[in-house]
Design a protein around this nucleic acid. Structure first.
Lengths: 343, 343
DNA sequence: TAAATAAATGCAATCGTTTGCGTAGTTCGA
DNA sequence: TCGAACTACGCAAACGATTGCATTTATTTA
């Protein structure tokens, strides 16, 4: 039952009394084989549902043709944004005849290096990656490039490498969101962001700062906190709301954090959005579950994934020059719901 | 820059003036090669960081050794439960030296067939799959088995095939949850489930029914609805709450549906959990976001994924007999939060 | 000292395909 | 009627690794 041997060209050749070369040519419809033979061979192959051994094909072509396997490295899997991106990559890849090999770095540099090695060994044609949080050396990525494996970054970009990348427009997304808060009457907007050594964190902060300036407000350091998860948000927010000059709005770098803020603010008895407005970033599952529903910046992970796959495939197929670093920015969209006032 | 040619055994052999066979043996530490040569070759390989070409290895061994690639077919990717399962599979697989190849069926039978073919071609050593909703023919799965590719089902089981599988204990999970509702004082528990042609739907319904019987309640058909998403829940619930003999509790087959119910019930002005209790199934991101937080049955996707990978690897490595269908059931856990009363 | 034994290495086939080149057999023009 | 030009195929060498068997050389034994 197990190991039903695959039908090979050799089998067909033996059966039909021709050489393997003839079978190969016939199956690739080469005109150098007579029409009758060609059809006979093709029919035989069809009837015995022959299909070529990809491994052998690859070995034969290894010097010229890349495989059709795309490696995807994800920091986490149980995560709305990363799931969306994976979804986008899968769609684009499969539509263009590629398949994907997925590995999770678990935010570990060590693991990331292992994965790169393993993917290199397994001859992926390229890799799409978001760095682990604790990655600070980039040799493993450079090795890949040297080995001729193109690299595309998404979300967490490697700043030291001039590699292709696709990111979300964090700056404009934040700028628009904070502008929305101000334009609906908020005067003191707090900012909960991630640690500034990540570029995306910096961009979002800049968007926040510039939105304030644009509307003639000044930046108050006491309203800026490093906080990117719910637990921290629930810990930090109460003190903030007790400030003599409390914020009347919060912008958080992700929905999870925003939900934490919302929970606390509601518990303290404030009306959302009238007394306190809140805006998140992601627009994941959570955003429509909380009460009121969360105003947030739609991050369009699926689109990010598609673009990343598109770049990679372009690089692999030579549509994009190998030495050029393609950089794309996916526009965000502000989704206004119940945690902010309407314009 | 591109295509830095891989270092091969032939290169080493040429460089060191020995035959390829000797290099091969030396690298596999065969005692039939003299110690000095062995070490010289190994050192050379290390210094020029040689690594074997997996493709060639595979081709050579194809008749005996399976690859180390596990195919995973998922109906959707942006979905809490499936993400968790994928996470579990990835963890177990990578811990045991396997990598995974992920494809999304998009709930389409057509696509599922294509994926199976593609994975067969790409020589995965086995496949872990949850059927698409509209899959009703199983030839593609049977082909795989015939080709010697072991199959493990999760979540949506193929009833017609006696294949290995791992499922969550839907029956007991539901029975416990509904018992909890009754034991905290609910008399009229409504059931929102999926269409009964899916086994998991049937099992959950049976759990519901038996919980009622166990507590001396009778089954009221008017309290049972086919509804497994939020939109439908929001459409159906209002009418239900207007019934002369309205339900005082709801059990929903997933968190999403439960949230829909919760939204409506709150909007209608009922107190949750005192006037109406609600229980979901999944324990995903949503459960801790709504207000009050959702009581729900923890589905333990990660565990399901791990078990599935464990079975598959067992089948591949021969630890489990190839003809035996291993069936595992992952225990659920009731997580009591704010949408039900406490015992 | 010759023959037997052991140790270290190479040869060549193999896995399933592809492909450059060579060569029968046919056809055609002069 | 003879060489040229096709046509339709086969041979054999790759791709990169493994492995049974043969071969060489060194060592031991009778």
């Amino acid at each position: 039952m197990n190991d039903k041997q695959q039908l090979t060209m050799k089998d067909i050749a033996r059966e039909l009394g021709v050489s393997v070369a003839t079978v190969s040519r016939a199956l690739s419809d080469s005109p150098s084989i007579s029409k009758e033979r060609r059809q006979a061979i093709q029919q035989f192959a069809r009837e015995h549902n022959y299909f070529p051994n990809v491994i052998a094909e690859q070995l034969r072509h290894s010097r010229r043709n890349p495989s059709r396997a795309i490696g995807v490295i994800v920091p986490e899997l149980v995560h709305y944004y990363f799931s969306s991106i994976l979804d986008g990559i899968e769609s684009e890849a499969s539509a263009r005849g590629y398949h994907i090999l997925v590995a999770k770095s678990n935010e570990s540099y060590q693991r990331e290096v292992q994965i790169c090695e393993s993917m290199l060994k397994n001859k992926v044609c390229g890799i799409i990656v978001s760095q682990a949080k604790d990655t600070e050396r980039y040799d493993h990525f450079e090795h890949l490039e040297q080995a001729g494996v193109p690299l595309v970054f998404y979300d967490r970009i490697c700043p030291a490498l001039n590699a292709s990348r696709v990111v979300v427009d964090d700056y404009m997304g934040t700028l628009n969101a904070v502008s929305h808060l101000i334009e609906t009457g908020c005067k003191r907007v707090a900012f909960f962001g991630a640690s500034m050594n990540m570029i995306i964190a910096k961009n979002r902060f800049n968007g926040y700062r510039d939105a304030l300036y644009k509307h003639g407000l000044t930046l108050d350091e006491s309203l800026v906190r490093i906080c990117d998860n719910r637990a921290d948000a629930e810990r930090i927010t109460p003190a903030m709301m007790r400030m003599e000059n409390r914020p009347d709005a919060f912008f958080a770098v992700n929905d999870e954090t925003a939900i934490g803020i919302l929970t606390v603010v509601k518990r303290l008895g404030y009306n959302v959005p009238d007394e306190v407005s809140i805006c998140g970033f992601t627009n994941g599952f959570r955003a429509t579950v909380c009460d009121p529903m969360l105003t947030t910046v739609e991050q369009r992970g699926t689109q990010v994934g598609k673009e990343a796959a598109d770049i990679l495939i372009g690089l692999v197929e030579g549509t994009l020059p190998a030495d050029h670093a393609e950089k794309r920015i996916v526009k965000t969209r502000l989704v206004i719901r119940g945690t902010t006032r309407h314009p």
